[in-house]
Simulated assay, not measured.
Amino acid sequence: MEYICSVCTGAYILGATGLLDGKKATTHHLALKVLQEKYPEIQVISDNKVVHDGNIITSGGVSSGINMSLYLVEQILGKTAADRTAKTIEFVH
């Protein structure tokens, strides 16, 4: 499967393309309200760092991009690979 991913306010770019229409997504916590107002067809999720809907994965602030990357590794290569990657980069996930 191919994925489209965004970190932080990159969700605005996906919103502008229409790729998030009818989907769940997230963005930086200070940008959630504006994303919802600008693109009301998106179901904005405020309590998850990573949101996966179909082939699109969005993440909150910049550090949430690491969470999303590890999530993506787990989706493609499995939990063992994600855990090993997190340990290698000294990230608790």
Rank of each mutant, 00 (worst) to 15 (best):
Y71I: 06
M1D: 13
K33M: 08
L70S: 01
Y39I: 10
L77N: 08
D21T: 11
S6W: 05
P40F: 11
H52Q: 11
D83I: 04
A31M: 14
G65S: 07
T27Y: 12
I4N: 07
Q36A: 15
D83Q: 14
T27V: 01
I4F: 06
A86F: 11
G15L: 00
K24G: 02
K23N: 05
V50I: 10
S46T: 14
S63W: 00
T80W: 01
Y12M: 14
R84L: 14
T27W: 10
I57Y: 04
L77H: 14
A82Y: 01
I13P: 08
T27I: 06
S64V: 01
Y12K: 02
C5S: 01
P40R: 06
L77F: 15
D53M: 02
R84E: 15
T27Q: 09
K33C: 05
D47S: 08
Y3K: 09
V92F: 04
K49W: 06
L70E: 04
K24C: 05
L20A: 05
V51P: 11
V62E: 04
N48H: 15
T80I: 06
I57P: 01
S69K: 02
V34K: 14
T85P: 00
E74Y: 05
Q36F: 11
T88D: 13
L72V: 09
S46R: 13
K87H: 12
S6V: 02
D47P: 12
S59H: 00
N55Y: 07
Q36G: 05
Y71R: 03
D83R: 10
A81N: 09
H29M: 12
N55C: 08
S46A: 15
Y71E: 01
T85L: 15
Y39N: 10
T26W: 03
H93V: 08
I66Q: 07
G60E: 09
D21H: 05
I66L: 14
P40V: 03
Q75P: 00
Y3T: 00
A31Y: 13
V73E: 11
S6T: 14
Y3A: 03
I13R: 10
I89F: 03
V44D: 10
L14R: 05
M1A: 11
H28R: 13
L20G: 01
G54T: 04
Y12W: 13
K33G: 12
K24R: 15
V73Q: 11
L32Q: 06
P40A: 09
D83S: 08
I45N: 07
C5L: 14
L19R: 08
D83E: 15
Y12T: 04
A25S: 04
G22A: 03
K24T: 03
H93W: 14
S46V: 09
H52T: 03
T88A: 13
N67V: 01
H52I: 03
G18K: 06
I89P: 01
K33Y: 11
V34S: 11
I42T: 03
